[in-house]
């Protein structure tokens, strides 16, 4: 039971992060290394809004997502868009952006570890296993957001435009879609989802200025496993790695620290055996 619950929650979090990362990569070929730094900023926003200003946690979460989205859009407009055609430059610029966020958080909040109160305190027991209410709530909320994202992508005109651009940017452009505007909207959605992940995960984790690094690596593993730019691939791969991590912790107590390494080993094996990932494409020319 513990493996199922831990796997589902870890998988859902990774899915949100990886899908939102894949979204902006698929549409605009932007490798946003600062993606999980936005997640960190959202978590600290909630810490301030609820802890320092005494705001209602739900209101705090919503404000945090808005703040992070605004940061994301500004970053896109003034940092990424001018150099968008140079992928390596974007990569380096977003690394720098993540470091700026890290140092700013360090300056404001110091390096001390912080925590955020759970929305619902306590736990219940299922088949002898204690499960936090907050974990179940988080899992439920993540599923709802994933469903909304699916609806947006599959059932709306905007979603159709995003998917078309992700499939073939040039043809989408020729069909009259404003590539630059779509990239900005997608960046907004992508960062909002990263912020949302930080918001829902904040009560379950320990906040530190370096908390963006570990999820970044695992998120990359998910994206590679699923196929770079493939949303469906990210979704499936997130749960594969989520359950893998849970299995490692439960099956090898003395090797619980290895869970990240196992995920990265899977990523390396996938790169060696199937470079396109589970649902990706082999060569850029195939796009």
């Amino acid at each position: 039971m513990n493996i199922i619950i831990t796997g589902l929650i870890t998988g859902s979090m990774l899915a949100l992060l990886a899908i939102s990362f894949s979204l902006i990569f698929g549409v605009a070929r932007i490798v946003n290394i600062a993606h999980t730094a936005f997640y960190m900023v959202a978590a600290y926003c909630i810490f301030s809004l609820t802890g320092k200003f005494g705001l209602n946690p739900v209101a705090g979460m919503m404000i945090a997502v808005v703040v992070v989205t605004v940061f994301g859009l500004l970053a896109y407009k003034f940092l990424i868009d001018p150099i968008r055609e140079h992928e390596a430059a974007v990569l380096i610029a977003t690394i720098a952006l993540a470091m700026i966020f890290q140092e700013a958080v360090m300056l404001i909040y110091t390096g001390d570890y912080r925590t955020v109160s759970a929305l619902i305190e306590g736990y219940f027991i299922v088949t002898g296993v204690k499960v936090f209410y907050q974990q179940v709530l988080t899992f439920g909320v993540v599923l709802v957001v994933l469903a909304l994202l699916w609806f947006l992508l599959m059932k709306t005109k905007l979603g159709l435009a995003i998917r078309s651009t992700a499939e073939d940017r040039e043809v989408a452009n020729l069909m009259g879609m404003n590539d630059s505007r779509l990239a900005m909207i997608t960046m907004g959605i992508s960062v909002a989802l990263a912020g949302f992940t930080g918001a829902v995960l904040a009560p379950l984790t320990v906040l530190s200025p370096f908390m963006w690094m570990e999820p970044l690596i695992i998120m990359m593993a998910v994206v590679v496993l699923g196929g770079l730019g493939s949303i469906k691939g990210s979704f499936v791969a997130a749960y594969i790695l989520g359950f893998t991590e849970a299995l490692v912790v439960f099956m090898i107590p003395k090797g619980a620290f290895l869970k990240g390494s196992v995920a990265l080993t899977i990523m390396i094996l996938v790169l060696l055996l199937r470079p396109e990932g589970l649902f990706g494409i082999s060569f850029e020319e195939e796009r």
């Binding site: 513990n2 493996i3 831990t6 870890t10 296993v129 204690k130 936090f132 379950l204 984790t205 320990v206 570990e214 849970a246 912790v249 439960f250 107590p253 003395k254 090797g255 619980a256 620290f257 869970k259 990240g260």
Partner: peptide
């Protein structure tokens, strides 16, 4: 009764706690 070694930055140790209990 046993030895558990989580990562020094682990954010969830419910698995270890269940096993310890």
């Amino acid at each position: 009764v046993g030895v558990w070694q989580p990562s020094d930055k682990a954010t969830d140790v419910t698995a270890e706690l269940s096993a310890i209990q």
